[in-house]
């Protein structure tokens, strides 16, 4: 991105001037989704069963807990960007768009924090519920 020529000033930016950042984040989080979801799928396939005892024992281990926390972060981030594109394409009224974008951002932050809290609780307080952990 030089500033000597017309093409140099716009290359990689586009009319919104921030599109490349958005576009790259969608790719970075896509790779994050790929890694963490493959981990989740392989884990689910190798668990002996889907009982509370088996799943909670698995997710309370350090590596599964961290991978699931990263999964929550990367999938919610990727979903937020994807849904923003959907909204920008189909919600044309600026007032409605503002409202839907507000709801999306609240849901994004709320969902991410809820997911991370649940994983932290499972990993750090494994016997708090008195279950067969």
């Amino acid at each position: 991105m030089g500033n000597g020529t017309s093409i140099g000033r716009v290359r990689g930016l586009g009319s919104a001037h921030t599109g490349a950042h958005h576009w790259l984040l969608q790719r970075f989080t896509a790779v994050g989704n790929l890694i963490t979801l493959v981990f989740l799928i392989v884990s689910l396939l190798t668990l002996p069963n889907m009982s509370y005892a088996a799943v909670s024992a698995w997710i309370s281990q350090p590596i599964p807990a961290v991978m699931m926390a990263l999964l929550v972060l990367t999938t919610f981030w990727h979903a937020r960007i994807g849904l923003q594109v959907l909204i920008e394409d189909y919600v044309h009224d600026s007032g409605s768009r503002f409202g839907v974008m507000l709801a999306l951002n609240l849901a994004w932050i709320g969902g991410t924090v809820f997911g991370l809290f649940c994983i932290a609780r499972l990993a750090l307080v494994p016997v708090a519920t008195g279950g067969a952990a």
């Binding site: 997710i59 997911g115 649940c118 994983i119 499972l122």
Partner: peptide, 11 residues
Amino acid sequence: LWWLGALASGP
């Protein structure tokens, strides 16, 4: 989130 929430809430 339901899955994680259910796990964190107990059996």
